[in-house]
Simulated scan of single mutants.
Amino acid sequence: MIKEWATVVSWHKGEALVSCDVKTSCNSCASRAGCGTRILNKLGPQNSHTLTVPCDTPLVVGQKVELGIAEGSLIGSALLVYMSPLVGLFLVSALFQALFGTNLAAFCGAVLGGVGGFLIARGFSLKLSRRENWQPVILSVALPPDAIRVETTTSADSQ
């Protein structure tokens, strides 16, 4: 089970809308100044993913929940998304090269096969996303943000 913490955005009638922050591997090593990956991550969008997850327990906005998804579904979806366009690219490119015998035909076949593989992956992903074992589930719920109150006193207050 792959786990990730998310923040509750809203809860209504047994469905929680949760937001997961996008995490990068940057800022975890000593070579931050000269790292090309860090620069590329700054160029990309810094957003969060919002998911709808069934939950019978009433939740409060801002509450943290631990989400889990099965490893098999994550590996299966990654294979579908990455391998379908790649296999389509190679197969159609080789077919066009064999049929027409030119590099331009092979290039056109590669583009068509890659786009076709992407569309096939998109169609299958819609069907697979409806499976219950491919859905994220709430594993644990943290305390609401207002459940703990911490009071601090300074030395001036105690005198």
Rank of each mutant, 00 (worst) to 15 (best):
L126M: 09
Q135D: 03
I148R: 15
V137S: 05
S140T: 12
P144W: 00
L143A: 14
L139H: 01
G114N: 02
R149N: 04
L112Q: 05
S129L: 04
V141L: 07
L143N: 10
F124D: 00
W134L: 02
L126K: 13
L119K: 14
I120A: 12
I138D: 02
G113L: 11
D146G: 07
F118G: 09
S129G: 13
R130L: 04
L139Q: 08
A142Q: 02
A147T: 07
L119D: 12
S129V: 03
S129H: 09
A147Q: 10
P145R: 15
R122F: 08
F124H: 10
I138G: 01
G117Y: 06
P144I: 02
P136L: 06
W134G: 00
I148V: 15
V115N: 08
N133P: 01
I148G: 13
L112Y: 06
N133E: 11
G123A: 09
V137D: 01
R149S: 07
L119W: 11
P145L: 14
A147H: 11
V150E: 01
D146I: 06
G113D: 13
R131Y: 04
G113Y: 10
Q135K: 15
R122G: 10
K127C: 10
R149Q: 09
A142M: 05
Q135E: 04
R130K: 13
G114Q: 03
F124A: 11
S140M: 07
A121I: 07
E151I: 12
L112R: 00
S125A: 12
I148Q: 15
L119F: 15
V137H: 04
R130Y: 03
S140E: 08
E132L: 12
Q135M: 04
P145F: 15
E151K: 12
I138A: 00
R131W: 00
A142K: 05
I148A: 15
A147P: 03
Q135A: 04
L119V: 14
I120P: 05
L143W: 03
E151F: 12
I120T: 14
A142E: 06
V137Y: 00
L143K: 14
D146P: 04
S140P: 05
G117E: 09
G117V: 01
S125M: 09
F118T: 10
N133S: 13
A147D: 09
G114T: 08
R130F: 01
R130A: 09
I120L: 14
L139M: 10
S129N: 12
S129W: 06
G117K: 08
Q135T: 01
G114I: 00
L139I: 15
